[in-house]
C-alpha cells in the first residue's frame, strides 16, 4: 500500500482516458467506439475514487454510482440506435455511414 500514491492512480486514469479518446477517434466499428467511450467513463471513475480516498470525502464515490448508472442507460440507447441503423444499411462501419457531409 505504501508504494501506491495518489499520482499513480491519476496517471493510470489519464492513460486509460487517452486510450479511450484515441480509440474513439481511430476505430471504425461503431460498437468498438462505444466500448472506448465506456473506457473513458471508467477512467473518470478511477480518478474520482482515488480523489475521494485521498481527500477522505465520500462524495466522489457517490458520483461514481451515478456515472455507472448513466453509462448503462447511454449504452442501452446507443446499442438500440446501432440496431436501427443496421436495419437500414446492413453495416456498423462508421466510414460507410456518410450520407451527410459538410
Amino acid at each position: 500500500m505504501t508504494g501506491i500514491a495518489l499520482h499513480h492512480y491519476l496517471a493510470l486514469s489519464a492513460i486509460l482516458f487517452t486510450i479511450g479518446v484515441v480509440g474513439v477517434l481511430t476505430r471504425r466499428n461503431a460498437i468498438i467506439v462505444f466500448m472506448c467511450v465506456e473506457l473513458m467513463l471508467n477512467s473518470v471513475n478511477l480518478s474520482l475514487v482515488a480523489f475521494s480516498a485521498y481527500l477522505g470525502n465520500p462524495t466522489g464515490q457517490i458520483l461514481v454510482f451515478f456515472v455507472m448508472t448513466v453509462a448503462a442507460a447511454e449504452a442501452a440507447v446507443g446499442l438500440a440506435i446501432i440496431i436501427a441503423l443496421f436495419r437500414n444499411k446492413q453495416t456498423v462501419n462508421i466510414d460507410e455511414i456518410n450520407i451527410m457531409k459538410w
Binding site: 474513439v24 461503431a30 467506439v33 462505444f34 467511450v37 447511454e74 440507447v77 446507443g78 440506435i81 446501432i82 436501427a84 441503423l85 455511414i97 450520407i99 451527410m100
Partner: peptide
C-alpha cells in the same frame, strides 16, 4: 445516421 453521430 443523425442519431448515431449524436450519440457518439
Amino acid at each position: 445516421e443523425a442519431s448515431l453521430k449524436y450519440v457518439i
